[in-house]
């Protein structure tokens, strides 16, 4: 028994403290994650994450499967509330307020945080109804406002030209790439501050991926974007800042260029150069 425990201890990876490169936050942090820990039941999934996310920039979360990057992303708009038996310590500050404070209005929080998922998940409604869904659930019934929002959001997600003549048709008739852009339109329809993207291109072909990446490039500045990706080229292409996570820990966080070209930690350099992961 003791021997097993001892061996486990030996094998448990030793972690140095997170290596931070200076992330420029001239406009302040959009999100400030402080000493954040998370357990699924008994299993700890996130360890002491400390991280400031730059306003108006694209921040990529990279790391091998199971490293907790999606978990972290889902904590930012409290989507993890759906999971039973979840324990959390630490804080995530948005606009000077801890979103895990008791009594916070989760629905209001989610309205400030658009989210795009791994697989396109349009509702079985018309394209129009999909886009204006966040407004509808907010109680907006003014036709003019809805029409304008729909056009703005679809233009914002570069889907307007393809969809403007078929707004009343079912969203399920769109191609996968179009569906994902529709989901982005839906996410930005309520004009959120932050856009969370959970591997938005993993179910798409290269052409659709290129379009989404272009779109992310256009959206940055207007929205703070946090994107989880498996694809390191994608992280390098679209993001300004990159956080590398491994086994629930934030290993290294800094400018994308620094992370990819001059990482401080060996694990980071191994991962970004493709030696493991």
């Amino acid at each position: 028994m003791n021997a097993v425990l001892a061996r486990k201890k030996d094998q448990a990876p030793q972690f140095e403290p997170t290596a931070y490169h200076i992330v420029e936050t001239p406009e302040g942090a959009a999100l400030d994650i402080q000493k954040f820990n998370l357990w699924y039941g008994e299993a700890q999934a996130l360890f002491d994450i400390d991280m400031k996310i730059q306003k108006g920039a694209v921040t990529a979360l990279i790391g091998p499967s199971g490293c907790g990057k999606s978990t972290l992303l889902r904590c930012l708009n409290r989507m993890n509330d759906l999971v039973d038996d979840l324990t959390i310590t630490g804080k995530i500050m948005v606009g000077g307020e801890d979103i895990y404070r008791t009594g916070i209005d989760v629905i209001a929080l989610r309205k400030r945080m658009g989210m795009v998922f791994q697989k396109p998940n349009p509702f079985a409604m018309s394209i129009y109804d999909n886009v204006v869904y966040p407004l509808r659930v907010d109680g907006v019934t003014n036709r003019k406002v809805l029409d304008e929002t729909c056009e703005r959001a679809l233009k914002g997600s570069a889907l307007w030209d393809e969809a403007k003549d078929r707004l009343k048709e079912s969203a399920l008739g769109l191609s996968g790439g179009q569906q994902q852009r529709l989901c982005i339109a839906r996410a930005i329809a309520s004009d959120p501050e932050v856009l969370l993207m959970d591997e938005p291109c993993s179910a798409l072909d290269p052409i659709a991926t290129a379009k989404i990446e272009e779109l992310i490039d256009e959206l940055k500045g207007h929205y703070t974007i946090v994107i989880v990706t498996h694809n390191m080229q994608q992280a390098a292409r679209v993001s300004q800042n990159t956080a590398f996570m491994y086994l629930g820990r934030l290993i290294e966080y800094g400018n994308t260029e620094t992370i990819f070209q001059n990482p401080k930690q060996k694990r980071t350099s191994d991962y970004v150069t493709g030696r493991f992961g």
Partner: peptide, 26 residues
């Protein structure tokens, strides 16, 4: 599918709205 519920909740819909507009029709 869970993704449908999550999509709706992420849009700022309440649980009841999610059930009413997304889950029940499906």
């Amino acid at each position: 599918p869970r993704s449908m519920r999550e999509g709706s909740l992420a849009c700022g819909a309440s649980k009841w709205q999610t059930i009413r507009y997304v889950v029940l029709p499906r």
